[in-house]
Design a protein around this nucleic acid. Structure first.
Lengths: 336, 336
DNA sequence: TCCGGTTCTGGGAGCGCTTCCAATCACACC
DNA sequence: GGTGTGATTGGAAGCGCTCCCAGAACCGGA
């Protein structure tokens, strides 16, 4: 171990110490060919002795690759981002980016100011590409995404915009299976608690519900709407109970609202699954601890992040990968 | 609007268009003095016309400031990071960093590989400083933090290590008030569900519990331990019920375990708060939706992130700020 | 020994910006 | 008209690395 160097060693010093040119040292660093074995080893020794680490920034400037991707989460931060969903997407994306040697810049694009900063980050070439989550209809972030020449991978598809590259989850199929499952349990007056209308996820899950109902020869009932957030499922459930006192099945567009619905049902004196069977969507941790535990549609959240990142990595590498829709799976628990 | 330029304009082009030297243009960019008014305006016009944005990387290389901070979350990612706690810290940190013009690199330092990457990021001067969260006793990440010359701000204080700079939450005080509250509600056989022993947070909360008990002339009972994670609170509660069938108050070291405890109590046929009063810690969303809603200790989570970031910003600026302990506050709900 | 073809090698020109510095200017005052 | 002060100005030297390229070194075969 060398004694603490005051200044970081540079590649020049490595080269000098190894008795080679900087070019040769650089070649060794990037293990490129055309370096004789003994020189290569000399350089490697020098690197070790000087405890040398190449400067990211200088490298980035010379190669014009930043080795970083921005993960942008649009929408109001406190409410949106606190959803553990994003944590898990980040875990997946982070792992996949790491494999490819990219760092992750997290950008919460909620305010105008943060969006402006994001735009600058992209225009200033601070990252090699963008992962974009939670984009809504007419989201101002779309303008930024459209304005950059950097590759952008969407997580999900916003309403009113077909992204060039995206990874999505099979919401329609999942919702269809959820509803079919309710019907299979003998329920015929199945209602839905839907998410906000400007969300593609909501719409897709609603579509799945309708498809299943129609396919079974039942009439899809108009849904009640929540915001996906915690307290809104209860109001929706109450509304549904008023409109359809005889309902016997509920498909909620996510677990949070389903958990609320369970509570509202209990408060209304209905038993679950005796009187009413309930299915959620997401398979978050909460689904396991509701009373009763929630039948729900599992979606591969980490995989979503992972595949987004992989797609981006391939785009950055100049390949032409194609978008992806990941499968969902029904998980049966005590609520049905 | 100029027609889409194939290549990003550089400062040289701006200077040329404005009819000044690159130095002058640079001065305008950084609004430094010593540029005559008309030239300054000419440069600004050129910037606008060319739609110029300075390249972050080149700037970083020249100034050796990266305008980025790493937010490192240690510990096993799936379980740890999914805790909404971190999401909120990130929101706070992100906002404060944004104010200071810094970007946020998120590093999940769970595996050896990710830690190695982190170490390289720091040594390669990929960031200006580090925010470090969820560090445990003998955490390998401590070695990395110690080995860098970059400023590091800790969130909380790990067991066995007093960080040079940290922002922490008043866990001892909060736990004391929680326990005093239980005692004030007439409970005298108050037990505690503790977190893992290698966590400073656990220890501090346990200490607060002990202090309050002793101060009230009661005997602190040996706690049962959980991991802070969801399913472990129930087992702990069951254990406590076996050891102290006559218990009438429970202080759980976090809301997750408190929620579990509520469930376990209900299953054991105890009423809350009739038979047993329960207090949690954190004031997460879950505290509002448990049955009954949970009295808990509110901690300013966003503020934690924000103050960590502010501390770091000042360190990066070469100031000598001092560490901080943020106050906590008891929130009374139906469980007591 | 000479030759064509490889494989090495290091010089040098960038990447796009900041910043030091010497030189120039502007202006007021004597 | 000369001089001094302080505000401008642009040239040039970096920041630390990559990569092109011309030339050197090496190799086996003729």
């Amino acid at each position: 171990m060398a004694d603490a160097p005051r200044r970081k060693p540079t590649l020049d010093e490595v080269a000098e110490r190894a008795g080679v040119s900087r070019s040769a040292a650089s070649r060794v660093l990037n293990n490129a060919p055309h370096v004789r074995r003994d020189k290569r080893e000399a350089v490697q020794r020098a690197i070790r002795e000087l405890d040398y680490v190449p400067d990211t920034t200088a490298r980035a400037l010379a190669t014009s690759r930043r080795n970083a991707a921005a993960l942008v989460i649009s929408g109001e931060t406190p409410s949106i981002f606190a959803d553990p969903f994003f944590a898990r997407v980040i875990v997946g994306a982070s792992a996949a980016l790491e494999e490819a040697g990219l760092h992750l810049m997290l950008c919460l694009a909620a305010s105008d100011r943060s969006r402006r900063r994001l735009e600058e980050l992209l225009r200033a070439r601070g990252v090699d590409g963008v992962l974009l989550m939670a984009v809504r209809e007419n989201d101002p972030v779309l303008h930024i995404a459209g304005g950059t020449e950097l590759p952008v991978v969407f997580g999900g598809r916003p309403v009113g915009y077909e992204p060039p590259w995206y990874v999505d989850v099979d919401n329609v199929g999942g919702a269809r299976r959820a509803t079919e499952h309710l019907i299979g349990r003998g329920r015929s007056r199945v209602v839905m608690i839907c998410g906000p209308l400007d969300s593609q996820v909501s719409r897709a899950r609603h579509r799945g519900y309708r498809e299943a109902m129609i396919l079974a020869g039942l009439e899809p009932l108009p849904p009640e709407y929540g915001t996906f957030a915690r307290p809104t499922g209860a109001a929706a459930m109450t509304g549904l109970l008023e409109r359809h006192p005889d309902l016997d099945g509920v498909f909620a567009a996510n677990d949070n609202m389903a958990a609320d619905a369970l509570r509202a049902l209990r408060e209304a004196g209905r038993t679950v699954p005796g009187d009413v069977a309930v299915v959620g969507f997401d398979d978050l941790d909460i689904a396991k601890i509701t009373e009763p535990p929630l039948t729900t549609v599992h979606q591969p959240i980490e995989a979503l992040g992972r595949e987004m990142a992989r797609l981006l990595v391939r785009l950055v590498a100049g390949e032409e990968p194609s978008s992806l829709i990941l499968p969902t799976e029904l998980v049966t628990r005590a609520s049905t």
